[in-house]
Design a protein around this nucleic acid. Sequence first.
RNA 1: GAUCUCGUAGCUCAGUCGGUAGAGCACUUGACUUUUAAUCAAGGAGUCAUGGGUUCGAGUCCCAUCGAGAUCACCA
Length: 511
Amino acid sequence: MTEQELLRRESLQKLRELGIDPYPAPLFDVTATAADITHHYEEIVLEDGSKNRLNYQDIAIAGRIMAAREAGKAMFLNLQDASGRIQLYARRDDFLNAETGEAPIFDHLIKKLLDLGDYVGVRGYAFKTKTGEISVHVREFIMLSKSLRPLPVVKKDAEGNVFDAFSDPELRYRMRYVDLTVNTQYRDIFIKRSRMIKTIRAYLDDLGLLEVETPILQPIHGGAAARPFKTHHNTLDMPLFLRIANELYLKRLIVAGFDGVYEIGKMFRNEGMDRTHNPEFSMLEFYVAYKDYFWLMDVTEQMLERVARALHADGLATAQIGDHTIQFAGPYRRLTIYDAIKEYSGFDAENADEAALFAYCKQEHIEVDKTMGMAKLLDEIFSAKAEKHLIQPTFLMDHPVEMSPLTKKHRSKPGLVERFELYINGKEVANAYSELNDPIDQRERFEEQLRLAERGEEEAMAMDEDFLRALEYGMPPTAGIGFGIDRLAMMFTNQSSIQEVLFFPQMRPEV
RNA sequence: GAUCUCGUAGCUCAGUCGGUAGAGCACUUGACUUUUAAUCAAGGAGUCAUGGGUUCGAGUCCCAUCGAGAUCACCA
């Protein structure tokens, strides 16, 4: 243990010797918060110059001690609660025992045995100090929980310059409780994330969709192209996978007769980690019967506009991402893959055959190999040439059928499917399509995936006979979409790393 | 997975050419009854990520390992 930790344990022992429980059981009835008081405190100055304090004259407030300044037989403390910080003022005279002339609570508890980071409860009244700071004059001081480790002390001057910020990302992510205690600005990211999800939920509820939960432990991992986490059920003695997607289960519910369902939940993909990928991440998926992908575009525009307004301080439908101001009010640009490539590279991919696509990639130094088919080549060209330009929300539509095994064939364009991806700030945030509901076509697509798997494609989808059986009973025409919740949160909070929008990003174990 | 950068006190960092481990905040003791990055005086605090090597001598140079970040690749 460090010197400071030992001292805190000594303080703990001394508190007990004084008969003060450092971890008391009874509730502490909080009646005011730091923000309440600082925003609503009122006083008037009377004709004789004295002040008449109008409110917060008998309050109870609780929180963590974040700073202490001794001033002789008085003391100033900064108390931090969930709403913010407020100054406490304690005066020795207020704790004097008239008979003994001693003030043990002040001399021992407040002045000596109190450490930064301790949780305390205070009863007293609000007032303004000489320098005009709204503060709480302490009448009663109660230890609520002793802190045994020193917090990083982050200081700010009057201009807002920060000193000694707790800034090491490794320590911040590993000890998020410390991070959010001392770097309270990061709380806003998570508050916004929560409000974003709440707004989405409200929007989908208003649309009349039913919120559902589907299995996370799945015997067959389907619905996406990704490597899964594998686990084992002891009683059943069978392997199970953590879901990489919930799509096939949500469609079963459409078969079952629900007109519209949505689920917000965690997905798990056993792949690389970087600043936009965490092994577990949150997805929103929703499926609505009798709709198509054009309808989903309209709904997406409305939903994101509503989210943007809910998160913007002035209710505007915009968000600042780096240097870009993103406009979330629709309509968004709608661009086919061919048009996107043509626009940003000048290359006419629509009228090129596979050999021509391959030759173009070589010419432009786009990394390709002989195993890639037309669809993959198109995707490579798009990624290299067009993706980064799609800053304002853009629906990239009409993908090749090979890359979309669960998507309905395009109503008029052979070889393509009715699919779109939403790009914002050069990154994909949603993937949507008119769902394939032809069970025979679906079986053929699965069989094609099996052939890919035999060729060594690790991420090919597995055949799901129960899903096919469900489709054979009949699924209405349906539109479905999935959103990466974490990536949306990154955009709406202007963060470039997924770790900043996850409370506990995955880390390698500490030594 | 590849490359680069980083790891020194609780926190943020300095550490020159290889020659006894430094600062600010935090902490301890003392002073101060309206301070606020409080101030003033004194003091304590380190397995320099881990392991090896070179050297008379390594925080510093070399190798390996662990952890983190960035870029790229892979992946949606």
